[in-house]
Write a protein that binds this DNA or RNA. Structure first.
Length: 533
RNA sequence: GCGGGUGUAGCUCAGUGGUAGAGCGCCACGUUGCCAACGUGGUUGUCGUGGGUUCAAGUCCCAUCACCCGCUCCA
């Protein structure tokens, strides 16, 4: 971890941006609390997102780069939802894995991802496991079987294989299993359940029948409310529904400060459009969302828009791009995801009506169980969209820009953190965009006499009605400036002797250190002007 | 879950078995007319937690928790 990251973490604690959760009890892995300044910063980020994406969105004209004008509305749905939501969304299956550990290699595998085949040789019969499939898997198992028996390559005909590569899930006991990275038999532990979703229970007395999950994403609440929104808000395609809220995932390894937390906040949009237009809308949202970060101050040199490779795509997705930031705690050249923009097709709406879908022979269709019934039954409600212009009922396609509020907050903190030399002293400064800065303006009487505090207090009271401003009369003026630099306050207003005679104050800029004189009554409009940039 | 490291004041850290420390910060008073000024005084600790060894443990031992690094995992 770089020196800068340690210093940033220390600053966050010292100045009240971020604390470990439940710290007096020793902390809790994967959970973090936002202090007085942190809550302002994160709220400013969420407010900027809500305003830019939803409340200040112009429904009448197409924004630059957009194929058409579109509408945006918001939603705030419950964290605990009907368990069937997660079965149809695919989270239940994907998040509910069985893992096996290898006592010898100390490696951990997903039970259903380990394959292998039975072999008989020299009077022994055992299962050679591997993580590799296809031709490579055959070769790999052959090599490892020979090695395990101490045979040479030319003795390969002694191996009698029983069947092709099959999943480890078909093997009842692991006594005779050669683990993928093991040299002896029977080193794998029995499969153990991994719940990546937080399980909870609805109803004070309920047992397993009341089992439910804390949502692992906010998106599903939007899908299941799609028809409610259409029926109640007069929106017409294309339109988007946005939501900001907490989500929960039992990450196996919470790491890197708040980057991978078990409780985190998302800012998600589900944008619904006609299937024929969805590629254009996908490109629009990719670019729009990338620009949002650069507009708020993330340097394009540390930010990248990365299109997923084809084999990286979810089975339902026709395109996904990540917006990634080169966090200082990552090795050089590596990036961490801030936001994913996914083209989800009609997977979600169809799944919530018909039952969980899977790609079978290249086509999305309802996944069936052994008895030929849907693996996870849908709601059966027709939640398609009816276009009364063309008299057509269809599943809209969905573009999903899904952003992490905590990761965004962390990225802006990392980007903002600077240490620089000023006249032989180190100045620590957070160069936060004024819209994000927890405190917009500090109001400082130069000295505590001659009516300066009184005038400064009047300015403070006036500005505090609309903005987060801070009054500070403690210590020398230079110290007070540095205190504000360290928490990212973009402007300082200082009331000095001249202020008392001509009503002007100095307006000091955090980044340039320059000061201009303005009339005291112009301070509020000056701030408003700069916050609109 | 495995291996390595760390844990002492708000922050950074010193303290190798014998009285709990420094710098910075913070607070008060005085001073102070623009970039971490100065003086005086003050404030801060279950030495991560629990147990053990010892006359005596921040220091040695065991356990445990949290964090950092590397594996593993990351729809």
């Amino acid at each position: 971890m770089s020196v800068n990251m340690d210093k940033l973490v220390s600053l966050c604690k010292r100045r009240g941006f971020l604390f470990p959760s439940s710290e007096i009890y020793g902390g809790l892995n994967g959970f973090w609390d936002y202090g007085p300044l942190g809550v302002e910063l994160k709220r400013n980020l969420k407010d900027a997102w809500w305003k830019d994406m939803i409340s200040a969105h112009d429904d009448l004209d197409a924004p630059p780069g957009a194929p058409l004008a579109y509408q945006m509305v918001g939603l705030d749905c419950s964290i605990v939802m009907h368990p069937q939501v997660w079965k149809c969304s695919g989270h239940y299956d994907l998040f509910h894995d069985f893992m096996v550990d290898c006592r010898e290699s100390k490696k951990r595998y997903r039970h259903d991802q380990v394959r292998g085949r039975w072999v008989e040789a020299r009077g022994k019969r055992f299962f050679v496991a591997t993580q590799v499939g296809g031709e490579e898997g055959l070769k790999e198992t052959e090599t490892r079987a020979l090695k395990h028996l101490g045979l040479r390559a030319k003795q390969v005909e002694e191996l009698v294989w029983d069947g092709a590569l099959v999943s480890l899930t078909t093997v009842a006991s692991f006594e005779e299993v050669l683990g993928p990275d093991a040299t002896s038999l029977g080193t794998l532990t029995p499969p153990r359940e991994f719940n990546l979703m937080f399980k909870t229970f609805v109803g004070a007395l309920s047992g397993e029948e009341g089992a439910a999950f804390l949502r692992p994403e906010t998106a599903q609440g939007i899908f299941v409310n799609f028809k409610n929104v259409v029926d109640s808000s007069r929106v017409k395609l294309p339109f988007g529904i946005g939501q900001v809220g907490k989500s929960f995932r039992n990450e196996i390894t919470p790491r890197n400060f708040t980057f991978r937390s078990r409780e985190f906040e998302q800012m998600e949009i589900e944008f619904f459009c006609h299937p024929s237009q969805s590629p254009e809308w996908y490109r629009y949202w990719r670019d729009r969302r990338y620009r949002w970060y650069t507009d708020l101050g993330l340097a394009s040199s540390r930010l990248r828009l990365r299109d997923h490779d084809h084999d990286e795509l979810s089975h339902y997705s026709c395109g996904t791009a990540d917006i990634e930031y080169a966090f200082p705690f990552l090795p050089p050249g590596e990036f961490g995801e801030l936001e994913g923009i996914a083209h989800r097709g009609d997977f979600d709406l169809r799944s919530h009506r018909e039952g969980k879908l899977a790609r079978i022979n290249g086509e999305l269709s309802v996944e069936l169980d052994a008895e030929g019934k849907p693996r996870h039954k849908g709601s059966g409600k027709d939640i398609r969209y009816f276009d009364d212009q063309i008299k057509e009922r269809f599943y809209p396609h969905v573009i999903e820009p899904s952003a992490g509020a905590d990761r965004g907050t962390l990225a802006f903190l990392c980007e903002a953190f600077h240490e620089e030399e000023v006249e032989g002293e180190t100045r620590t400064v957070l160069r936060l965009h004024p819209r994000l800065a927890p405190v917009k303006v500090a109001i400082l009487p130069l000295v505590n006499k001659d009516g300066m505090p009184e005038m400064a207090a009047r300015i403070y009271k006036e500005m505090k009605r609309d903005y987060s401003v801070y009054y500070d009369d403690g210590g020398a003026i230079g110290r007070r400036y540095r205190r504000q630099d360290e928490i990212g306050t973009p402007y300082c207003i200082t009331v000095d002797g001249q202020s008392l005679t001509d009503g002007t104050v100095t307006w000091r800029d955090r980044d340039t250190l320059e000061q201009i004189r303005i009339r005291a009554e112009d301070a509020l409009p000056e701030l408003q002007k700069r916050l609109r940039i």
